[in-house]
Each structure stands twice: as structure tokens, then as C-alpha cells.
């Protein structure tokens, strides 16, 4: 990858000779893959809802499929963002909705029950991946009640805060006197 980035460097600027290790974890890569999958699926659901409902024998539910498509796209964008953990949990929730919608179509008179069963299987598999990725990308921020170091002695003023305040007051008073003096001079005819 860095070979490509070297091509676009301005002539004379340092180029990468040897890449260092990346801190990206496998879970980050999984989150990225799921994010793009989510967007792809969402686009299909939004643009071709009829194909989806026909495949599942659930004609008449096109609006619902479209809405699910929008949800998939938003969850996908979130999964690709800095807030990927929230995006992945949104996907886990969405998987639940998908499963519920599919189960509602699993009726004795639906000739496409086989497709619905297959879709349910896929949703189950993806849900496991979503859950795993969501678990593994938990933010590493310390909890709110975590013990923290405090810095009560770091004033940054080697001579103390009071000396700063005193100096500032003296400068202000001096400036004030000068202003008065200049004002008096201006009043002199």
C-alpha cells in the first residue's frame, strides 16, 4: 500500500522505506467489512425492494424493506466512522428486526419458505459476527468512576499565582496612570 502512497509524494519529501506495525486489530477490519456489507445490502433493499419481497414471497412489504434499507445504510456509515462500536450495536439491533420480519413471513401458505429459512440462517450468522465485532471494538475510554491522577500542584507559575496577579495589577495600574496623564495633557489648552 505504501508503494502507492510514495508515488504521490512531492519530489524530495521523505518516502516510506519500511512500514511499521499497524495498531489496527482484526476486529477493526471486521467492523469495516461489516460496514461496507451493510451499505451494500441497504442500497439493494432501498433500490430494489420488489426483488427482495418476491424472493421471500412477501409481496406488499416493499415500504418496510425500503425502510430497512435506509437503516442498513445508516448503520453501515456509523460502523465505518470513529463511532464504529455504536454502528455495530445498531447492526445487532437491526439483525433482530430483520429476523422478526422474516419470521412473520414464515407462513404455511408461503411458497418461498425455503428462501426465508435460508435468509434467517444468514441473518443469524451475520448477527454473530456483528455481536463479536461490537464486543471487540468497545471503546477503551476509562469508565467515569475510574480513579484518575489529579494535578493540583501544576500551576505553571514558578513564582506562584499571587505574584502573577500582583504583577498584572501593577501593570494595569501603571497603564491607568498613563491614560489619566495623557488625558490631562489633552485637556491643557
Amino acid at each position: 500500500m505504501f508503494h502507492f502512497s510514495n508515488i504521490v509524494r512531492t519530489k524530495g519529501d521523505p518516502k516510506i522505506v519500511q512500514g511499521g506495525p499497524s495498531l489496527k486489530q482484526p476486529a477493526d477490519q471486521l467492523a469495516r467489512a461489516l460496514g461496507w456489507f451493510s451499505i451494500g445490502l441497504g442500497v439493494v433493499e432501498f433500490l430494489a425492494p420488489r426483488r427482495v419481497t418476491e424472493t421471500l414471497g412477501m409481496e406488499g412489504h416493499e415500504t418496510l424493506v425500503r425502510a430497512f434499507g435506509v437503516r442498513e445504510i445508516l448503520a453501515g456509515i456509523m460502523s465505518l466512522s470513529v463511532e464504529k462500536n455504536a454502528g455495530l450495536w445498531a447492526r445487532v439491533g437491526g439483525d433482530g428486526l430483520d429476523a422478526a420480519a422474516l419470521l412473520s413471513g414464515l407462513t404455511p401458505d408461503n411458497p418461498k419458505n425455503g428462501n426465508i429459512a435460508l435468509a434467517l440462517l444468514m441473518v443469524g450468522g451475520i448477527a454473530m459476527l456483528d455481536y463479536r465485532a461490537a464486543q471487540d471494538t468497545k471503546p477503551r475510554r476509562p469508565p467515569r468512576d475510574a480513579r484518575r491522577k489529579l494535578y493540583p500542584n501544576r500551576s505553571g507559575f514558578p513564582k506562584g499565582i499571587e505574584s502573577v496577579r500582583t504583577a498584572a495589577r501593577q501593570i494595569a495600574a501603571h497603564a491607568g496612570q498613563n491614560e489619566v496623564k495623557q488625558g490631562d495633557e489633552r485637556r491643557v489648552p
Partner: peptide, 10 residues
């Protein structure tokens, strides 16, 4: 995004 590495460069 979120990927800074310590590389060897010219």
C-alpha cells in the same frame, strides 16, 4: 483513519 504507524522513511 485511526491508523498511525512508526515507519522507516528516507
Amino acid at each position: 483513519k485511526e491508523d498511525i504507524r512508526c515507519d522507516t522513511v528516507t
